[in-house]
Simulated scan of single mutants.
Amino acid sequence: MNRTPRDRDEEGRARSARPRDGLGRPLPYGVEGVPRQPEGVVRTPAQTLREAQRLLDAGMPFHAHEVFEDAWKSGPAEERELWQGLAQLAVGLTHAARGNAAGGARLLLRGAVRIAGQPDPYGIDIGGLVRWARALAARADTVTDASDEAPRLLAS
């Protein structure tokens, strides 16, 4: 079997160098894609929420998920559930917008369960996000544009 070698980073971990679209889907090599989020960026919670909201509003929930992933990996252990739940909400929206309604609904509901009742020192609208996720999960098969479905992360 003839296999193309996998793209690797400096540490030898597999990393796809293929360009991606706004929903994180791989595009053919040579096509211009959406700039990828750098990995391992340490941000304050306010910076994380601001960057994730910008990406969600731009219809790029896959990229917002990567911002939340950085927060859970670099933040305090007691906040891991919160950031992981927010990442699941972003991935759920990603799957729904890609046409994977069942997977999107499943992740939206998982994320809602994970963040429900979480303490929040950052002004995140936990209750509003849980309601948004449950409502979107119920109609995940109707999602066509991720930016039209972007939730508000902070309470107004």
Rank of each mutant, 00 (worst) to 15 (best):
E39D: 15
E11N: 04
R98G: 00
L27P: 13
G85L: 06
P35C: 06
P26F: 07
A64Y: 01
A87S: 14
G92I: 10
H95D: 06
A135K: 04
G92L: 11
G24Q: 01
Q47F: 02
A155P: 01
L82N: 05
M60V: 11
F68Y: 15
A138E: 13
D141V: 13
L93C: 00
A97D: 00
P28D: 15
Y122M: 11
L153N: 01
R110E: 12
E39L: 07
G111H: 02
L109A: 08
P45T: 10
P35L: 09
E10W: 07
N100Q: 14
R139V: 03
S156E: 14
R43H: 10
A140N: 05
D57Q: 14
A90T: 14
K73T: 09
G24Y: 00
Q37S: 02
G92C: 15
D7P: 10
A140D: 01
A133T: 02
G128E: 06
G40L: 05
A150R: 12
A112C: 04
A52I: 15
A150Q: 10
D9F: 03
D57R: 15
H95W: 11
E51W: 14
H95I: 14
A87E: 06
G99C: 11
D7L: 12
E149Y: 00
R80N: 01
Q53F: 00
L55S: 04
K73F: 04
M1T: 12
R54A: 09
L56H: 11
A52V: 09
R13G: 00
P5N: 13
R114M: 06
L108R: 02
F62Q: 07
G117H: 01
G103T: 08
E78G: 05
R139C: 10
E69R: 14
A146L: 02
P119D: 09
L27H: 07
V113M: 13
H95A: 05
D148F: 05
E149C: 01
Q37P: 02
A77D: 12
D9Q: 06
